[in-house]
């Protein structure tokens, strides 16, 4: 699988090349302004990508055998849902426990498993998140409104061109007997990046 993946340079697909060519042409001719384009695309941030990550997590909560497969080979376990990442993209699932909380960052650029999580949020790509998550993960978490017990260790995973991480948050208490669909609603995007926990089931009840 990895022999055909080039580690040294970037690769754009045929379709990405066509889209970039159009953007350059329209920008050169003054019909579009890239910052304004980015701004419009950001309004669709939560609407891009299949976002099947929540289903993956929910299944791992109710199906111990699936959980086993996810932890040993996340790429294959995610593909069971019919989704595959881009060529050469290898997924690794990291599981939160009472002792360890996982957070994902890409210090180098903004590698992100969009085939699983949708489009990256703006803050994920920002320089402060990328630099501070490694130095002060607890401080960054506090800014996201997450305070963990002092005993909980925080592990930060740095994405690369080859490896993308999926955080499996802890299943919230009070969800015994819930269906996979209902559980998936608790698994918000940020909980799979590690900047949030799975939703409190009581909050889902009141929101519904």
């Amino acid at each position: 699988m990895s022999h055909d993946h080039d580690h040294d340079h970037s690769e754009l697909s045929e379709i990405e090349l066509r889209v970039r060519a159009l953007e350059t042409l329209l920008t050169d001719k003054g019909y579009i302004d890239p910052p304004a384009l980015d701004e419009l695309i950001e309004t669709y941030e939560t609407r891009i990508g299949p976002k099947n990550g929540a289903r993956v997590v929910a299944r791992s909560w109710i199906d111990p055998e699936y959980r086993q497969r996810l932890m040993s080979d996340a790429t294959a376990a995610i593909a069971e849902f019919g989704f595959t990442g881009r060529q050469g993209e290898h997924m690794v699932a990291v599981e939160n426990t009472p002792d360890t909380h996982n957070m994902v960052v890409c210090t180098l650029c903004s590698c992100y498993p969009w085939t699983v999580l949708g489009l990256p949020p703006v803050w994920y790509k920002s320089a402060p998140y990328r630099s501070r998550t490694v130095r002060d993960p607890r401080g960054v978490l506090a800014e996201f409104g997450v305070t963990l017990p002092k005993e909980t260790q925080i592990k930060v995973w740095d994405s690369t061109a080859e490896v993308r991480y999926l955080v499996v948050p802890m299943r919230p208490a009070g969800t015994d007997g819930w269906s996979e669909d209902k559980l998936a609603e608790l698994v918000v995007r940020d909980s799979m990046i590690g900047t949030a926990l799975a939703l409190d089931p009581a909050k889902l009840e009141t929101a519904a």
Binding site: V19, L22, E23, L26, L37, Y44, R47, G49, W114, L119
Partner: peptide, 26 residues
Amino acid sequence: DGGPVFAAPWEARVFAMTIKAHEAGL
């Protein structure tokens, strides 16, 4: 219900470019 959905980032990009080029009167 919430509007258009995209399967990949490039789809949103070409969608947005079309809107902007239309707004520019092309």
